[in-house]
C-alpha cells in the first residue's frame, strides 16, 4: 500500500494542488512564478480566440466523433452476431485496426486520404466525383478524416458491444417475434434497451477521452502542414485540428506558458466533470439495468 500512497501523493495530489496554484500565476520556467490572480482565466475567456476555437473543435469531435463511433460500434457488433460460421475470423479482422498504434494509424490515413495521390480520392475520382474532398488539407473535411480514422479503429467499443449483445437472452427475441415485432422493432425495443448499460459505459469513456483527444490530431497536422517546425504545424489546416489538448500542449510546452496551461487544464477538468455528470443524470431515463423491457 505505501508505495501507492507515496506515488499517489507525489504524482497526483501534489501536482493537482500545485497546478491549481500555477493557474493563478504567470510562469515560464525560466523565472519565478508571478502571482497574477485570475488573469489567466480572464484572458482565456475574453481575449483568446484560439481557446474558443479549441473548445469548439473539441466539442464537435466529442459530439460527432463519439456518437458515430458508438453507432458504428453497435452496427459492426450486430453484424458480427449474424454468421454461424467464420465469426471469429471476421471479429479478428474488424478488430485488427484497433491494434495499429495511433501514430501509425494516423500516418496511414494521412496517406490513404491524400487528395492527389491517396487511393481514396483516386477511387472517388474514378467514380466520377469531380472535386473529391481535400481531407486533412482543408478545414472543412479534416475533422471528418479523423472521424473516419476513429471509425476504422472502432474495435475496442465493438468488442464490448458484442459481449453485451451476446448476453441478451434469446427468449426475449423469441417473445418479441411471437408478438409480431419486425427486425427493426426487435432491435429498437429489445436490443437497444438491453445493451444500454454498455452504450452508457462507452459514452462516458468516449466523452472523457474525447476531451483529451491529442495524438491523431497532432500527427495529422504535423504530417500535412509541411512546416519544418512541428510545433508550428499544430492545428493545421486553419486551426481546424486545434483540439483542447493540442492547444494546451502548445501553450504549456512550446510557449512555456505553464500558468496558462494549468488554468486550461483545470477548465478541462471542470468541463469533463460537468459533461460526465450530465450523462449520469440523464442515464436514469435511458439506461436499463436488470433487463427490464420498456
Amino acid at each position: 500500500m505505501s508505495p501507492w500512497v507515496v506515488g499517489f501523493s507525489v504524482f497526483i495530489v501534489y501536482p493537482m494542488v500545485s497546478s491549481l496554484y500555477f493557474s493563478f500565476t504567470r510562469y515560464d520556467l525560466l523565472s519565478e512564478p508571478v502571482f497574477v490572480g485570475l488573469e489567466n482565466y480572464r484572458f482565456m475567456f475574453t481575449q483568446d480566440p484560439n481557446f474558443w476555437q479549441s473548445v469548439r473543435n473539441t466539442l464537435w469531435m466529442v459530439g460527432v466523433g463519439v456518437s458515430l463511433r458508438i453507432v458504428f460500434g453497435v452496427v459492426t457488433a450486430t453484424v458480427l452476431t449474424w454468421p454461424r460460421r467464420g465469426a471469429k475470423v471476421y471479429r479478428t479482422i474488424f478488430f485488427l485496426p484497433t491494434m495499429a498504434p495511433p501514430v501509425a494509424a494516423a500516418v496511414a490515413f494521412v496517406f490513404v486520404l491524400n487528395p492527389r495521390i491517396g487511393p481514396v480520392n483516386q477511387l472517388l475520382g474514378a467514380l466520377g466525383m469531380e472535386h473529391p474532398p481535400l481531407w486533412f488539407y482543408s478545414p472543412g473535411s479534416a475533422k471528418w478524416g479523423l472521424v473516419l480514422l476513429g471509425l476504422w479503429g472502432v474495435g475496442d467499443a465493438m468488442i464490448i458491444f458484442l459481449a453485451g449483445l451476446l448476453d441478451v437472452p434469446r427468449q426475449l427475441y423469441e417473445a418479441a417475434e411471437i408478438e409480431g415485432a419486425g427486425p427493426w422493432q426487435r432491435f429498437r425495443f429489445v436490443t437497444l434497451p438491453m445493451i444500454s448499460p454498455v452504450i452508457f459505459f462507452n459514452l462516458v469513456m468516449g466523452v472523457i477521452s474525447g476531451f483529451q483527444y491529442f495524438t491523431q490530431a497532432y500527427v495529422a497536422s504535423v504530417a500535412t502542414s509541411g512546416n519544418r517546425v512541428a510545433t508550428q504545424a499544430l492545428g493545421y489546416p486553419q486551426g481546424s485540428m486545434l483540439f483542447y489538448s493540442v492547444y494546451l500542449y502548445q501553450q504549456g510546452f512550446t510557449y512555456f506558458r505553464m500558468g496558462y496551461a494549468s488554468a486550461m487544464a483545470w477548465v478541462l477538468f471542470l468541463i469533463t466533470m460537468a459533461c460526465t455528470a450530465l450523462i449520469f443524470r440523464t442515464s436514469a431515463r435511458w439506461v436499463h439495468y436488470g433487463g427490464a423491457l420498456r
Binding site: 499517489f8 507525489v10 504524482f11 497526483i12 501534489y14 501536482p15 493537482m16 500545485s18 497546478s19 500555477f22 520556467l29 472523457i208 476531451f211 483529451q212 489538448s245 494546451l248 504549456g252 510546452f253 505553464m258 496551461a261 494549468s262 486550461m264 487544464a265 483545470w266 478541462l268 477538468f269 469533463t272 466533470m273 460526465t276
Partner: peptide
C-alpha cells in the same frame, strides 16, 4: 473511491507540475 476518482482526472491537470518536478 479515491482510486476511482483519479480515473476521471485528466492527465493534463497534473502534467505541468509533474514536468516541473521532473525538471
Amino acid at each position: 473511491v479515491v482510486v476511482l476518482s483519479t480515473l476521471m482526472l485528466p492527465f493534463q491537470v497534473t502534467v505541468v507540475p509533474l514536468y516541473i518536478i521532473f525538471v
